[in-house]
Design a protein around this nucleic acid. Structure first.
Lengths: 157, 157
DNA sequence: CTTTAGTCCGACCTTATTGATCGGAGATCA
DNA sequence: TGATCTCCGATCAATAAGGTCGGACTAAAG
């Protein structure tokens, strides 16, 4: 239960990979293309491409067209939170259907609903959890494999 | 994203209703049948029946057969946590596919996966959140929820 | 200026999960 | 014994998720 989607998983992996290449590498600033990430983590290429496009549209990464093109982080690893990434892919956090209820689609239980308020508090707590954790925090002790990086400590800016 | 299912919603409503009737009412100890709950909250009868059966099988409520039958809480409202209810309906908490990976179904990304460990920390935090909140908390007062950021402290693995 | 490698974008299909339904068997009490 | 309830398994439809395909656009290299 409460599972996040594969797309969101892929997004997290990809962003972490881009961050590692961009900041902890021998060639900092190098752009990363979709194929490189897809092969590294065995992610279907086409699907990953869609995920990266979505992330770019949401302003988390910036795309560079043409040959030698690819993606770069749009801002530092400390300024990208897990909540931003997940919401960019899956839409706003909402543990119940009525979390973001629009006009006219009132749930049938609402009239006597007794669990809405406490659940919204739970939801808020989960959101804080996800929004307090950044990409930087995710990069702690996991070294990158393909690229030699003895001191892969994110020196974000 | 991170939505809980309708069945789980129904389970929470039903349990809270049973608790209210059983403890806060003019006729304490009265059993509650499926139809009463279904009509009160506009829940499809057959579906709610299944949900209650599942809850009974998981030991959260006890069923009484025959006419004037119905359900009662199996233990006090302080001993039933939200986590127990949700897991009883939707299965164990797992924000990623690899949270409870069985033999032979290793995920393709696992080899170079760099997000598993941090995500498991997030998952653990969410679990604590849900397991620290009881049915009692959902009923009158303001639920007390404490959040812990997994990024702040390293949970040993 | 043409080619080529790459991103970009939208439509599409396929499968798994969820929400909901149906039919009957077993238990209990008037 | 009949009416009323829970119990249980099988089934179906709707929706979302995962994954695919084809084509348009862009920029660097020859």
């Amino acid at each position: 239960m409460l599972k996040i989607s594969k797309k969101a998983d892929y997004a997290l992996m990809a962003l972490q990979h881009i961050a590692l290449v961009q900041f902890g590498d021998v060639t900092p600033g190098r752009v990363v293309n979709t194929k490189e990430i897809a092969e590294e983590y065995n992610i279907p290429l086409e699907l990953l491409a869609k995920v990266l496009q979505t992330l770019a549209k949401n302003g988390l990464i910036e795309s560079h067209n043409g040959p030698k093109g690819g993606y770069l982080l749009a801002r530092s690893t400390r300024q990208i939170t897990i909540a931003q990434i997940l919401e960019g892919i899956e839409g706003p956090l909402g543990i119940t259907d009525c979390s973001h209820e629009k006009e006219g689609e009132l749930c049938l239980q609402r009239e006597h609903c007794n669990i809405r308020t406490p659940l919204l508090k739970v939801q808020d707590s989960i959101y804080q959890l996800l929004n307090n954790m950044t990409l930087q925090d995710m990069m702690g002790g996991t070294p990158l494999i393909t690229i030699q990086s003895p001191s892969a400590q994110g020196v974000a800016q």
